[in-house]
């Protein structure tokens, strides 16, 4: 029911589109921040509450933070490589960006594998009915799972970036596209660092295992 059939597409100039897309991606990241915030709130709140003393039931050993930081380290490295690559692209050095994107892809996949490995290594005993013992283990598993989800998305985005760079899609005027991916990289890395700090330094519950407010 369109009036005219002689429609031609109007293209906005890349800068306009770029500023638009940066804004949109920032908003989507805000949504993800709210989600991660909810998980962080869950961890700290349950740790504080320590209902029935079941934050960490007796005999439970906290997960060693080493693996968390290994994953986070890989992510930081990936972020740095990717961000430098994006800067090179802005300066017109396309091959440098291409290389950086592939390296970042490999790093994101390494981080993902390490993350999954950590989830498998968690020494949380599941009871015979398959339930986690306590909310510490539940939270750790969920936070690790959320990070794995982040890393999966990151790997897909970085794969696209690397592949499109290979096809020569990116140049100076379109350098805002990798910059969008940098935003994402930056946010997932920050979230991993925040969660890592929290799970490293806020472990044992400060509250006595009591039933009361």
């Amino acid at each position: 029911m369109t009036m005219t059939t002689e429609v031609h597409l109007h293209h906005d100039d890349p800068d306009t589109v770029g500023s638009r897309e940066r804004f949109g991606v920032a908003l989507l990241i805000v949504a993800d921040i709210a989600f991660v915030f909810s998980l962080v709130f869950t961890y700290t709140y349950l740790r504080f509450l320590n209902t029935d003393g079941a934050w960490m039931p007796e005999g439970m050993v906290a997960a060693a933070p080493g693996e968390t930081w290994l994953v986070t380290g890989a992510m930081i490295l990936g972020l740095v490589v990717f961000a430098l690559g994006a800067r090179d692209l802005k300066a017109g050095k396309q091959p440098k960006f291409r290389r950086a994107a592939w390296i970042a892809l490999v790093l994101s996949i390494i981080a993902l594998v390490l993350q999954i490995q950590q989830m498998r290594n968690f020494n949380f005993s599941l009871g015979e009915k398959g339930y986690f013992a306590g909310t510490y283990s539940s939270s750790m598993m969920t936070l690790a799972g959320a990070n794995a989800f982040h890393l999966t998305l990151t790997a897909i985005i970085t794969l696209g970036m690397a592949n499109r760079a290979r096809l020569g899609k990116y140049n100076e005027p379109t350098s805002w596209q990798p910059r969008l991916a940098t935003y994402w990289w930056l946010w997932v890395t920050i979230s991993a660092v925040v969660v890592g700090l929290m799970t490293t330094f806020l472990v044992a519950s400060p509250s006595l295992p009591s039933m009361g407010t």
């Binding site: 709210a34 909810s38 998980l39 509450l49 029935d52 079941a54 013992a133 539940s138």
Partner: peptide
């Protein structure tokens, strides 16, 4: 997203066996 998180945790409690809302497992 906080509503979504509430439901994700609910789903994990129901399907994976976490104890976020289970008072006997430290939840609330």
């Amino acid at each position: 997203p906080t509503f979504m998180a509430a439901q994700v945790l609910s789903g994990l409690d129901r399907g994976v066996g976490t104890t976020f809302y289970d008072a006997s497992g430290g939840g609330s």
